[in-house]
Amino acid sequence: MKLRIEISDGLPENEVIIRCGRVDNTVQKLQAYIQSLSAPKLIFYKEQQEFYFPLDEILFFETDSEHVYAHTVNDAFRVKHRLYELETLLPHVFVRAAKGIIVNTSCIYAISRNLTSSSQVRFAGSHKQVYVSRHYYKALKEKMSERNQ
């Protein structure tokens, strides 16, 4: 793999372009790593403790009455951002699935389509499930198609 760094004057923001013949495992890992560098560093709270872990461990963010929770495979942590703030902060693999839910598309294992009601999303290695409302279904499907390309 060739590595080339170009220095350009007047660029408002650093830009990384991956030029490849096809998107294989290595390219995907590179993409995930570069995205993780620019991802926000969130702090997760549970029982007077603060936790720091990478965003790719998050299956989805969910809000109940007033708090926002980040769900991992077997646990849930509070975050101090509102859902609409997270929507702008998080990497593009996170998409809105319902009014109160943002899912990590890279952790989605299956989507059970239901024509008459909301579709159900299941995550790899977890019992947790969420419903995608019809309003957000199309955007989620597009994101899943991008992931599989």
């Binding site: 969910e62 109940d64 009455s65 929770y69 849930a76 909301s118 947790k128 499930q129 419903y131």
Partner: peptide, 23 residues
């Protein structure tokens, strides 16, 4: 519709599908 408080929550669903995580 969600209601109550954290220790006495209530969820009501009519013609919808929803998952709720109790905390």
């Amino acid at each position: 519709e969600d209601g109550g408080n954290d220790n006495n929550p209530s969820v009501s669903v009519h013609f919808g599908s929803v998952s709720r995580y109790l905390h």
